[in-house]
């Protein structure tokens, strides 16, 4: 391997690492569209924020779930409720520092009252909260709670068992 190839590989490596912490801004409609276009995917959507202690405590469980998925159509999606203005200064550096792998988007919607019910009517608005969506049927399950890894995998398996 010559120097140039090595440099290119290094560059690609760094680029892919940087890519994991890129957080785009989305609206609720974007999320819904994504679920609708999800084919056979089961979405595990975690609502969190960098300012929310119990959220940060449970993120490793979602990271572990994401890393453990092999040949199964499960998509772990983190939805940050941080201030959109802090996406570059706070949210992305936080994810990078922690090395969390799942894709993260930031929900850019100010009036929570207008969209919380669209996610789930039982949601009070407290976080952490997790939504499971089976894209084929549109079936949903909502959890206003925090999870350990064991609890999370159990909940995901239970949700997917019903799906089949």
């Amino acid at each position: 391997m010559n120097m140039r190839t090595r440099l290119i590989i290094l560059f690609l490596l760094l680029a892919s690492m940087a890519g994991t912490a890129q957080v785009s801004l989305v609206r609720v409609a974007d999320l819904e569209q994504r679920f609708a276009a999800g084919a056979d995917t089961t979405f595990i959507v975690n609502f969190w924020a960098t300012w929310c202690k119990p959220c940060i405590a449970e993120l490793p469980a979602f990271d572990q779930l994401h890393r453990g998925i092999v040949d199964r159509p499960i998509k772990v999606l983190l939805v940050s409720l941080d201030d959109p203005e802090e996406v570059k200064s706070v949210v992305e550096p936080f994810l990078k520092r922690k090395g969390f792998q799942p894709e993260c988007v930031l929900l850019d919607e100010p009036d929570a009252n207008s969209w919380i019910d669209a996610i789930d009517e039982s949601w009070s608005g407290a976080i952490p909260a997790t939504l499971m969506v089976e894209a084929t049927s549109g079936r949903r399950q909502f959890h206003e709670t925090d999870f350990t890894y064991a609890e999370l995998t159990k909940a995901v398996e239970a949700f997917m068992r019903v799906a089949r």
Binding site: N113, I116, D117, S124, G125, A126, I127
Partner: peptide, 12 residues
Amino acid sequence: EPAFTKAIGCTI
């Protein structure tokens, strides 16, 4: 109207 609204917040 409305007599009930929701908001994001910290869990108790």
